Computed example of a mutant assay.
Amino acid sequence: MVASACGGDSDPLGASGDCGGGTDQLTVGSANFPESETVANVYAEALRANGFTIDTKLNIGSREAYVPAVRQCAIDLVPDYTGNLLQYLNKDATATAAVDVNSALITELGTELGIGKPAPAEDSDAVVVTAATAQRWNLRSIADLAAHSAEVKFAAPAEFAERPGGLPGLKKFYNLDIAPANFVPIADGGGPATVRALVEGQVTAADIFTTSPAIVANNLVVLADPLHNFAAQNVVPLFNTAKKSDKMIAVLNAVSTKLTTAELISLNTAVSGDAKTEPAAAAKAWIVAQGLDKPVA
């Protein structure tokens, strides 16, 4: 999810699409991780319910692959994340608050790319602690953790120690100063090894994405980031403007309105939890539950 380098715009799918086709025929793509595939299926199901003819090309790869594919109409629509998409389009972008990220993103899209309404659902980095730690130290925000800096062992990917939104940002914005000896690099992107280290007490806090099912499953606490150290990462539909229609925007915006972080966690839990539901099946069930299986008024 966090790929942000610009990369080349070579055709990643082997052949450019037809940007001149009808706006009621769309190809929906996804990145190569389960959450993206699930949200892509949500878009596909909602659009089908509104009379669109939908093909899917899922698990395309990283942003370096699927953004050029959208530009060339090899796919027409893909879920993305506002902050990382902005960084991909402009590596020097500094906006972090949601309103600033969204405004900057509109400027950077150019004429070929467009977005719908960003969803409330946000899959962003977060400082996460156990409920016991939150209760013991009365923690609500990252700022509350700063007074305990000397006691905090922090787990995150190795690059978190150097990147602006990692340890340097936590120190700059919140005075949370993690000594090098107390930084524990774990290379699973906030996954099972990181969660296990946190739950078992090997570390005090960890960088875990906000839509991880492990947060609810382990009663973990996400500390608030009121100063926006971490860039907003709201789920947003990215599309080729040649395929834009008022009807498509209405459907995508209806989906975005319903797609909260809690709902996205629920979808991720269905797909990646014990049930191991296929993303397409999880998406279809969610669409029905949200009343989006009927035409949008």
Rank of each mutant, 00 (worst) to 15 (best):
D80T: 14
D80S: 14
Y81R: 09
Y81S: 04
Y81I: 02
T82Y: 07
T82W: 13
G83I: 04
G83P: 00
G83D: 10
G83Y: 09
G83N: 06
N84C: 03
N84P: 01
L85P: 02
L85V: 05
L85R: 10
L85G: 04
L86R: 10
L86V: 02
L86A: 06
L86Y: 05
Q87P: 00
Q87I: 00
Q87E: 09
Q87Y: 03
Y88D: 02
L89S: 05
N90W: 01
K91G: 10
K91Q: 12
K91H: 09
K91L: 03
D92W: 01
D92L: 02
A93P: 09
T94W: 04
T94E: 14
T94F: 02
A95C: 06
A95I: 07
A95Q: 15
A95K: 04
A95T: 02
T96H: 10
A97W: 03
A97G: 10
A97Q: 08
A97R: 11
A97F: 00
A98S: 14
A98Y: 13
A98R: 13
A98H: 12
V99E: 15
V99L: 11
V99Y: 02
D100L: 13
D100F: 10
D100K: 11
D100C: 10
D100T: 09
V101Q: 09
V101A: 11
V101N: 07
V101K: 06
N102D: 09
N102I: 12
N102E: 15
S103W: 00
S103Y: 01
A104K: 10
A104S: 14
L105S: 02
L105F: 07
L105D: 03
L105W: 11
L105Q: 09
I106H: 08
I106D: 00
T107K: 13
T107S: 11
T107V: 12
T107L: 11
E108N: 04
E108D: 00
E108P: 00
E108A: 15
E108Q: 15
L109C: 05
G110L: 13
G110M: 12
G110E: 13
T111Q: 14
E112V: 14
E112R: 14
L113V: 08
L113P: 08
L113M: 08
L113D: 10
L113H: 08
L113F: 06
L113N: 11
G114H: 11
G114P: 03
G114L: 08
G114D: 07
G114W: 06
I115K: 07
I115T: 15
I115R: 14
I115F: 08
G116K: 13
G116P: 00
G116A: 12
G116T: 13
G116N: 07
G116F: 08
G116D: 05
K117I: 10
K117N: 06
P118I: 09
P118A: 07
P118W: 05
P118Q: 10
A119F: 11
P120I: 00
P120D: 03
P120Q: 07
A121D: 12
E122A: 06
E122P: 00
E122W: 10
E122L: 02
D123P: 02
D123G: 06
D123N: 15
S124K: 15
